[in-house]
C-alpha cells in the first residue's frame, strides 16, 4: 500500500444472489482528500460504503482501509473511521449533549477529553442554547451538522458520509460543506456519496458509478475536459447516454 493512499480497493465484487451490486471496483483514496462517490440511486454506492465500513463482507476482492485489511482487521478499522448515514442517525429522545457523549463513549474517548472537545464544538457551532435541547426539536439543518460533528468527534482518519445532504435546502448544504472543508483541513479524509451533481464540484476527486461499475474517475476538471462538459451535471448526462447507446 502506498504511503499516500488511505483506502485501496482492488477488484471488489459484491453479489446478492444473482444480482451484482458492486462489479469489480478498483480505486484508491488519498489521504486528506474529499473523494466523491457519485451515481444514481441503486448504482451500488451504499453497498460499497457498507463494505468499506465493515458492516458487509465483500464477495471477493482486496480492500484496505486506513492501512488495515477489511477481512482480518475490521475491529481496528472501526476505531479509525466515522460514519454518517442518510438518516443523520441521532437519537431523537436524547439531547444534543447526550448524543455526543454517547457516541464519544462508544468510541472510547476519555471522559475528560469528551468535555474539552464538547466545549470546543459548542463554541465552534455556536450551539450554547441548543446543546441541552432534544434532537427531535431541532431543525433538519442542525441535526445534520450535529450528526456530522458526532461522526468526526473521535477524530477518525476517514469519515464516510452516505448522502449526508439529502433533503436539505441549498444554503444549508453549502454550510454543511464548510464543515467538511474544515474537517479535511484537520487531516481527516472524507469519502462522500451524493446524487447532487453540484456537490460533485466541491470534491477533490470523484468516481461515477453506473450499474455497479465505476464508469469514470478523476478530478472534476479532468472529467469535464474529458467529456467536453460545462459542469458535472453534463458529465453525468453524457455518461448515462453512453451507457444507453452501449446497450443498443
Amino acid at each position: 500500500m502506498s504511503e499516500d493512499n488511505i483506502i485501496e480497493v482492488e477488484n471488489l465484487v459484491k453479489k446478492f444472489g444473482n444480482f451484482t451490486a458492486n462489479d469489480n471496483l478498483t480505486f484508491t483514496v488519498k489521504k486528506s482528500e474529499i473523494f466523491g462517490f457519485l451515481g444514481a440511486n441503486g448504482a451500488g454506492k451504499t453497498t460499497a460504503i457498507k463494505i468499506l465500513c465493515g458492516i458487509l463482507f465483500p464477495t471477493s476482492g482486496n480492500v484496505i482501509v486506513a492501512g488495515f485489511d477489511i477481512y482480518k482487521e475490521r475491529n481496528i478499522i472501526k476505531q479509525n473511521i466515522g460514519y454518517m448515514s442518510q438518516g443523520f442517525s441521532l437519537y431523537e429522545d436524547l439531547t444534543v449533549k447526550e448524543n455526543i457523549e454517547f457516541y464519544a463513549g462508544i468510541y472510547g474517548v476519555k471522559r475528560k477529553e469528551i468535555k474539552i472537545r464538547l466545549d470546543e464544538l459548542v463554541d465552534k457551532l455556536q450551539i450554547h442554547d441548543l446543546k441541552n435541547k432534544f434532537v427531535k426539536d431541532l431543525p433538519l439543518g442542525w441535526k445534520q451538522k450535529i450528526a456530522f460533528s458526532v461522526a468526526i468527534f473521535h477524530k477518525p482518519k476517514i469519515v464516510f458520509l452516505d448522502e449526508p445532504t439529502s433533503g436539505v435546502d441549498p444554503i444549508t448544504r453549502r454550510q454543511f460543506w464548510d464543515l467538511i472543508y474544515e474537517a479535511v483541513e484537520s487531516g481527516i479524509t472524507v469519502f462522500v456519496t451524493t446524487h447532487y451533481m453540484d456537490e460533485a464540484e466541491y470534491c477533490d476527486r470523484i468516481s461515477i458509478m453506473v450499474d455497479g461499475k465505476i464508469d469514470a474517475m478523476g478530478t472534476p476538471t479532468e472529467l469535464k475536459t474529458m467529456y467536453k462538459a460545462k459542469n458535472m451535471d453534463e458529465v453525468f448526462v453524457k455518461l448515462a447516454r453512453k451507457q444507453t447507446e452501449e446497450i443498443k
Binding site: C53, K78, Y83, S85, G87, S89, L90, Y103, G108
Partner: peptide
C-alpha cells in the same frame, strides 16, 4: 427503523 443500528454496527462496539 431509525437507522441508528447501522451506526452502532459501524462503531467499535461488538
Amino acid at each position: 427503523e431509525m437507522g441508528t443500528m447501522e451506526i452502532l454496527l459501524v462503531s467499535p462496539l461488538k
